[in-house]
Structures are given as C-alpha cells and as structure tokens.
Computed example of a mutant assay.
Amino acid sequence: MKKILITGGAGFIGSHLADELLAHGYQVRALDGLSPQVHGPEGRRPDYLNRDVELMVGDVCDREALDRALEGVDAVYHFAAAVGVGQSMYEVAHYTRVNNLGTAVLMEALIARPVERLVIASSMSLYGEGLYKTPHGEVREGGERSLDQLRRADWELRDTDGAVLRPVPTPESKSPALASIYALSKYDQERMALITGRAYQIPTVALRFFNAYGPRQALSNPYTGVLAIFASRLLNDSPPKIFEDGLQQRDFVSVYDVARACRLALETPEAAGEVFNVGSGQPQTVRAIAQRLARVMGKEHIEPEILGKYRVGDIRHCFADITRARRLLGYEPQVRLDDGMAELAEWLADQSAEDRVAQASAELSARGLTV
C-alpha cells in the first residue's frame, strides 16, 4: 500500500481526504500542529480523525518534524496553512511564517527526500475578482472597486461607462489579483511547490479550492469558512453578519467532492504540473446561503444582518469554471447543495460553538479594515 502524508491532516479538509484515501486502500499519516484557533486549547487529537490515521503532532516550519513525517512516504498533500482573509491583514507575520516559510521548509525537505507526487492546496482567493462580461459581451477581468465607490455602497463592478459588469465562471487562466495577505501567501505556496517540483522532477499538482463546506469545520474559529461562521451565529440564536449587501456570489462545494478531487489529483498521471479549480461550478449569493442554512437548521426566523460595509481584502464575485478538472481529472461534483446542507444541519444539531464573530469584527474595525 502507498503511504500518504497530509500536512494539516487533522483539519477540516485534511481529515475528509484521509477518509477518502483510506477507503481506497492507502495508508495515511497526518502532520498537524493542532492550532488552538482551530482545535481548541487542549491540543488533543480530534474525535473525528479516523483511527487508522497515524497522527504526528508538529510544526510545519520544523524541519526535523517534517523529516520524521516524510519517512517511508510515497506522496504528500500539503494542506497546512493559516486560513482567513481578514485576520491575515493584521497577523501578517503569522500568516507569512506558516504559509510561506512552512512551504519553503517542506520544499527543502522534499528536495532531500523526493516523493512520487506532491499535491498543494491553493485557493480561489488568489484570483481576487472573478471574470466578468460587459453589456456588449466582452469578457474582461474584474478590477478593484475604489474606496469612494464602496463608501457610497455601490458594490458592483462597472465598466468605464458606468454599466454594471456581469460575473461569469472564472477559469485557471485568469491572472492573479492578490487582494489580501492570505491570497498572496496561497499564491506563494502554489508557485513555490510547482517551481520546486519542476526543478527536482517531483510531479506536482495545485488545487485551487473554492468555498468548501461540510461537517468538521471549526465552528468557534471566526476566520474559517463562511458557512461555519454563519452556523456558529445561528447555533447561538444570533443573526449571521454579512458584509456589503449580501448579493456577492461565491462557489460552495461539498468537502466530499473536494476530497475526491484531491484523490484524483494523486492518481491521474496527466495532472502533474497542472493547476485546477475545485468547486461546484454553481454560483450562490452569500445572503441566499445564510437564509438556506437558517432554514435547514430550523431557525428560518433568524434573518441575516446585512452590514452594508466593505471588508478590506474582500472581492465581489468569484465562482469556478471547472472545465479543466472535468476534462483532465474526470472530476464531477456529486453532492447537491440541498443534500450537503441537510447533512451539515444534521451534524450541527449535536454541536456547540463559542461565537467569536463580534470580537473578530471589532478587531477589523479597530484597525480600519472595514469601510
């Protein structure tokens, strides 16, 4: 059996990938620092982590810990990262250390101990704004909205004539537009892995994850995925807080589909050296997602709170064009949003969460990171 290392393997996506790999006959080892922000102050092995996963607790920036974790390993998934757009704008050193330096230390370890395949977790955040069409049908990349426009609560992107641009699916060919320290660090992780892989003949694949959702998200982490943040508020009978007008569009993809895409990236020879979007290909407004989550949780009486504010680092619209993943990986999303949300609600029924959203919002506001 092939032995696979997942850095960050005790986390949300990493643990689901471990289940997927184990079900297909792989051995799995996880290296995870068990960050208190994600796993709580106890720093213990999460109950949801499959008992067949060999967990090694260690810092991804620690070369000795990485060398131990790489012993006897055939392939590596690099998922270890600090996650969160807003927090990255003031904990700059922390995000740069974990994401950029951590990846650099891993690359040096892999130069000394090459593997058959490296799969790197990248992010849709590196696109910044997605792709758009003008009223005349011209496809163009979205630019930045001015602070003056945002202060007027004029949220949509416009062309030079003032006409609203229409969002369309974003392919991998779109140029990066790095709007946050988090986005910059994810792009750095992706490029570092691909450059090193090419130079040292380590077949490398980068997967740009869109908004993954499902059981096991860290509900008390106010910088995690938007659905987990909304769930935390609803579990405490508080309204989800939504920036701008709530009509910004995102791509919500089941963690089970993400895990399957990750396995396909390992098993598909043609994937080496490529970058793939991993999403559902279906846009949803953030407001509609909040309302749908409240409904499946039996809390439809709690309407989201529309803040009418802009958060520095946020973008308006971005959802995935998954044509390349379909063609080269054979990837096809299998979990319908209604089914995925119903399962999420079932899991949430047995969960509790410490609502830290107000604290996180206050931190952003105190630093002038909301407009």
Rank of each mutant, 00 (worst) to 15 (best):
M124P: 00
L5M: 07
R295W: 10
L101Q: 13
E156K: 06
L207G: 11
L234M: 04
P239S: 14
P239Y: 12
E172A: 02
Y331M: 09
A153D: 12
F243V: 01
P240C: 04
A109N: 12
V296S: 09
D159G: 02
P215M: 08
Q87I: 08
H94D: 11
R216D: 08
E305D: 11
V275T: 15
A342R: 15
I202P: 09
A360F: 05
E138Q: 14
G142V: 08
I302L: 07
M107R: 04
A80R: 14
F210A: 05
F12L: 09
L17F: 10
G86M: 07
A23H: 02
M1K: 13
E156V: 03
V371W: 09
A212W: 04
I181A: 05
R51M: 11
R158N: 00
E42G: 10
A345V: 12
R287W: 13
E141L: 04
R151H: 09
E141N: 06
V139F: 03
A18T: 15
R216W: 14
L110A: 00
R63Q: 14
Q37I: 14
A179I: 12
I111F: 06
G246N: 09
N236E: 07
F276V: 06
I202K: 05
Y90P: 08
F276D: 07
D59F: 02
S238Y: 04
S254F: 00
R29I: 05
E346T: 12
A366Y: 07
Y213Q: 10
L147M: 14
L235R: 12
M297P: 14
R233G: 03
M56K: 10
L178Q: 03
I202L: 07
L328E: 03
L17C: 06
E129I: 05
S185P: 08
P203E: 06
K2I: 00
G25L: 09
I120R: 04
P46A: 09
L131D: 01
I242D: 03
G137H: 08
P239W: 10
R117E: 02
Y90E: 10
R151G: 03
T323E: 12
P333R: 00
V168L: 13
G43M: 04
Y187I: 01
R260S: 01
E116Y: 06
V253D: 02
S232K: 01
A179K: 15
V83Y: 12
S125E: 07
G8F: 11
S125P: 00
G84E: 03
M192H: 04
A112Q: 11
L247W: 13
A112C: 05
E144Y: 04
P114A: 08
G308L: 12
T285P: 02
R316N: 07
L49Q: 12
G225Y: 00
S125F: 00
K309P: 03
